[in-house]
């Protein structure tokens, strides 16, 4: 489903982003990533801080802050890098943000209505009626233990850290993506929230979708059992293995392996 070949990406420099920062030289973060993800699989990407994990997630989603300097990414046979941010999303790519942004004044209802409509259009499905939509939101909110009233609140505004992460999984449930890239979804969660999020994501696994979990710690993997574990360091995947690799990392730390 996802095929990444020798992906190089950097941040900074004049062209990076619309904000026109220009405050520093360009820095290469991804230095040749290679990865294959097939339908039905769960891959975990682990690694020390600064290794490029979040950058990989951002680059796949198309964040304009980063510049792809070389390499290729195919998503369902399509050239992902040629698509705009929203086109990638409509094709079925979902990014669970590490730091979900607050958007005052924009309600979850209006936001999700628009997003779900786009996704259904791309899938050739009919738009939902208002009551169908509401029923769907209640169902998906229950999946992650969020109160249904949340749908009338502004996006992430006043949400606790745990609620923000649950909100990411709620949206994943609403949009039913082909590929979900979850960037440190477990950071900042207490034991209970971790279980809820973990079980919620597992419940969304299908034979025809795939999940890439970016995580620093192995504890989330107790709930979402990966098929493959990769270690990202210095902008490259330096080691790959099965579930056991995660346990080894937990016991030995990254220093011993990287």
């Amino acid at each position: 489903m996802l095929s990444i070949k020798d992906l190089h990406a950097s941040v900074g420099g004049r062209e990076a982003g619309e904000a026109g920062r220009g405050d520093g030289a360009e820095r290469e973060i991804l230095r040749g990533i290679n990865l294959e993800v097939r339908a039905g699989e769960v891959h975990a990407i682990m690694g020390p801080n600064g290794s490029g994990k979040s950058t990989l997630a951002s680059v796949l989603a198309g964040n304009p802050r980063f510049k792809v300097t070389s390499g290729e990414v195919l998503f369902e046979e399509r050239d992902l890098l040629a698509l705009s941010v929203e086109e990638r999303a409509r094709e079925g790519l979902f990014l669970g943000f590490q730091y979900p942004v607050e958007i005052p004044g924009v309600t979850m209802a209006n936001f999700m209505k628009a997003a779900v409509a786009e996704r259904r259009k791309a899938l050739g499905l009919q738009t939902l009626t208002a009551s169908e939509f509401l029923a769907m939101t209640r169902e998906k909110a229950a999946l992650v233990g969020l109160a249904p009233a949340m749908i009338s609140r502004a996006v992430n505004e006043g949400f606790s850290g745990g609620e923000k992460k649950k909100n990411e999984i709620f949206q994943m449930a609403m949009l039913a993506p082909r590929l979900a890239v979850l960037d440190e979804t477990d950071s900042g969660l207490d034991i209970d929230a971790l279980r809820v999020v973990g079980e919620g994501v597992t419940a969304l696994r299908r034979k025809d979708n795939a999940i890439v979990l970016i995580t620093h710690y192995q504890r989330l993997l107790d709930y979402i059992v990966p098929d493959y574990v990769h270690v990202l360091a210095g902008g490259r995947i330096v080691l790959s293995g099965g579930r056991d690799l995660a346990l080894r990392l937990e016991a030995e730390g990254y220093d011993g392996i990287v």
């Binding site: 619309e18 989603a61 979902f94 936001f111 997003a115 996704r119």
Partner: peptide, 17 residues
């Protein structure tokens, strides 16, 4: 807020919307 715009686009909402 450009971050918020990116967030919404990642959910499939086009930029203008």
């Amino acid at each position: 807020d450009e971050e918020a715009i990116f967030y919404m686009r990642q959910r499939g909402v086009d930029e203008a919307t």
